[in-house]
Nucleic acid binder design. Structure first.
Length: 121
DNA sequence: ATTCTGACTTGGG
DNA sequence: CCCCAAGCCAGAA
């Protein structure tokens, strides 16, 4: 099928933008409706270890039409992380509420109750 | 090529 | 509750 190496016109290695992002997005795609995962949790599941920040970077890089439920990722405090873009955080919260996730007065959700617990890592 | 700038978390003061 | 530092990727200017 595909030439596996050295075709003059093809790169030896696929020019993927970023392995890191791809892996992160893959994990986030697994988060079921009505459940949430923290940045740290996603980092672990993606095999990045303690690098929750990278998860934030990867999600920030998502195009608007990406088939990734980015809104299901919240911070370790169970809150929607403040976003630089106006309204972005409001949208995230709205999307979660639409899936049945409730927030308390301080804008915090119950991680114990809503956290996604994948059987397989 | 260098610099800047974000969706984080943890440990400590 | 607030503040600070470290760890570290990628796209834009």
């Amino acid at each position: 099928m595909l030439a596996t190496r050295g075709a003059a016109t093809l790169p030896a290695v696929p020019a993927r933008r970023s392995d890191l992002h791809a892996r992160i997005h893959a994990v986030v795609r697994r988060i079921p409706r009505g459940r949430v995962a923290t940045y740290g949790q996603v980092a672990e599941l993606a095999g990045l270890g303690r690098q929750p920040r990278l998860v934030g970077y990867a999600l920030a890089a998502l195009p608007d039409d990406a088939p990734v439920p980015w809104h299901r990722v919240v911070n370790a405090q169970g809150r929607v992380s403040p976003r630089a873009t106006p309204g972005a955080d409001r949208l995230q919260r709205a999307l979660l509420e639409r899936e049945g996730v409730r927030f308390d007065r301080s804008g915090r959700l119950d991680l114990e109750r809503h956290r996604w617990r994948p059987r397989r890592a």
